[in-house]
């Protein structure tokens, strides 16, 4: 791995031009982020905070109003920057008259693949995403989760070094979403960089090396996941099969320790990323 970042976004601002009736809308405001090669970066934020917009700018689908973005050092404005990227848009859709396999062949040959290699790779991707049985069915008849999986297969077809996934688990059943998370973890082990958004924070917490939290088009928190969610002066204990007596003992011990040691709460552990998310985005709202 070279130290060229997989994705770099510098002071990106995106303003959607308004119509005569509606004014212009600033969807992303002075956003900077870097995704290092080989890591899994999670971008989270409430609805309408500009995550998808940022991804589209990175992929050259939208023009930045200010700032610039690049992929492996190649500016997004150049077609070549997309040679090594697989993109899964939110709610992906494909030519509904093609079947699953034909769809993968289509995207593969757009990337310059052909012949037996393409056929083999397409079958491999269908197997990977569990779509073998549906391979000869028209995409028009696919369910939401199947479309999502086909989107993932399509993004992977040309063995990209970077994956950009916009809500990959939306609409996928628990087993499928588990599978996708395992895949992401596997990609990381194979050195593939992943930029992913999701609203399912437990899932993000599980796969991401680093996260950025966006609100109202700005980055409000960014860093390594452990750093962000670790609260230095608190310790969390997770105990299995604890009897009420044991809990009472622990409580007594804490009280005995005196000074400012206190038992803040006990119970089942909560998703700390979620708490962080709510805090961070609320702060942004107030400011």
């Amino acid at each position: 791995m070279s130290d060229t970042p997989a994705v770099s976004v510098n002071h990106l601002t995106k303003v959607f031009k308004g119509t005569l009736v509606k004014g212009a809308f600033r969807a992303v405001h002075d956003l900077s982020l870097t995704v290092k090669a080989g890591e899994v970066y999670g971008l989270i934020g409430p609805n309408g905070s500009g995550k998808s917009t940022t991804m589209k700018v990175i992929l050259g689908l939208l023009k930045p109003t200010e700032g610039d973005t690049s992929i492996f050092g190649v500016p997004s404005t150049e077609v070549a920057s997309r040679s090594d990227v697989g993109f899964l848009p939110e709610n992906p859709y494909f030519y509904k008259h093609l079947n699953g396999r034909e769809t993968l062949h289509f995207y593969g040959s757009l990337c310059g693949m052909r012949g037996a290699k393409l056929k083999e790779r397409a079958s491999e991707m269908l197997a990977l995403t569990g779509l073998e049985d549906a391979a000869t069915r028209r995409v028009g008849g696919y369910s939401k989760g199947m479309l999502q999986r086909l989107g993932l297969a399509q993004a992977l077809i040309h063995e990209p070094r970077l994956l950009v996934l916009d809500e990959p688990t939306a609409g996928v059943d628990p087993a499928g979403s588990r599978k996708i998370r395992d895949l992401i973890i596997e990609f990381r082990s194979r050195g593939i960089t992943v930029l992913v958004t999701s609203h399912l924070l437990e899932q993000m917490q599980e796969v991401c090396d680093r996260v950025g939290i966006m609100a109202h088009g700005r980055m409000v928190r960014e860093g390594r996941l452990e750093d962000l969610i670790a609260v230095e002066n608190q310790t969390e204990m997770v105990i299995e099969n604890a009897s009420p007596a044991l809990l009472a003992q622990i409580d007594a011990l804490v009280k005995a320790a005196g000074s400012d040691t206190r038992l803040l709460r006990s119970g089942h552990p909560r998703t700390t990323l979620e708490r962080l998310f709510l805090e961070a985005t609320n702060e942004a709202k107030k400011s």
Binding site: S2, T34, G73, V74, V79, A80, R82, S109, L110, G112
Partner: peptide, 26 residues
Amino acid sequence: MSDATTSSAAAKTPKVRFSPQRVWTM
């Protein structure tokens, strides 16, 4: 992120040219 690494990475990725095969696929 020095200039040198950026340009070397950029140089590694060949420029994408017009391709009749791609047009045919489309």
